[in-house]
Amino acid sequence: KDIRQVKLHLKGTAFQLKVWEALLKIPMGNLSTYGAIASQIGNPKASRAVGTAIGSNPIAYLIPCHRVIQNSGMFGGYRWDPMRKTAMIGWESFHTAV
């Protein structure tokens, strides 16, 4: 059994669960946008709702909401401090660089 495997029981709306599941598909060291997540879950006009669902993520880092940025390339806000988001993105980028 892979020691990195974690099982979680998350409580949220159906929409939130879809968003959080999409976040789990973003590979370490990669970034996505609110709009891309909205499109990925089949609701391309729901960027703001995606942002709200991401902000409701109860488990920082395990559900990698820090990997989502604005379409402009700005990192945007982060429930657990924007500087922490910047640090996590930098750490992942460094550790996945070829």
Rank of each mutant, 00 (worst) to 15 (best):
T33K: 08
R84Y: 03
T96A: 13
S93Q: 12
I54N: 08
R84N: 03
R84K: 10
T96V: 14
P44G: 07
S32L: 00
T13C: 10
A87P: 03
V68N: 11
T33N: 07
K11S: 02
C65A: 14
S93D: 09
G12A: 01
S32T: 04
R84D: 01
H9L: 11
T86W: 02
Q5C: 10
M74C: 05
M83Y: 11
K11L: 09
W20K: 00
K7H: 13
Y34P: 05
L23C: 09
A22K: 02
K25F: 05
I59G: 01
L10K: 04
D81F: 10
A60N: 14
Y78E: 03
G29D: 01
P82M: 08
S72I: 01
M28Q: 11
I59P: 08
S32N: 06
G73R: 00
H95I: 09
V50D: 07
W91E: 11
L8A: 14
F75G: 14
N30R: 13
S56W: 13
G35V: 00
A46K: 11
N57T: 12
F15R: 10
Q5M: 04
I89M: 07
G77M: 13
V68R: 10
N30P: 00
G55C: 05
A36M: 03
I54M: 05
Q5N: 12
F75Q: 15
T33V: 08
G90H: 02
M28Y: 00
S39E: 07
Y34F: 12
I37D: 10
Q70Y: 15
I3C: 05
S56D: 13
A36L: 09
L8T: 08
L23I: 06
I59E: 02
H95E: 13
K18V: 01
W80G: 10
S32H: 05
G77P: 04
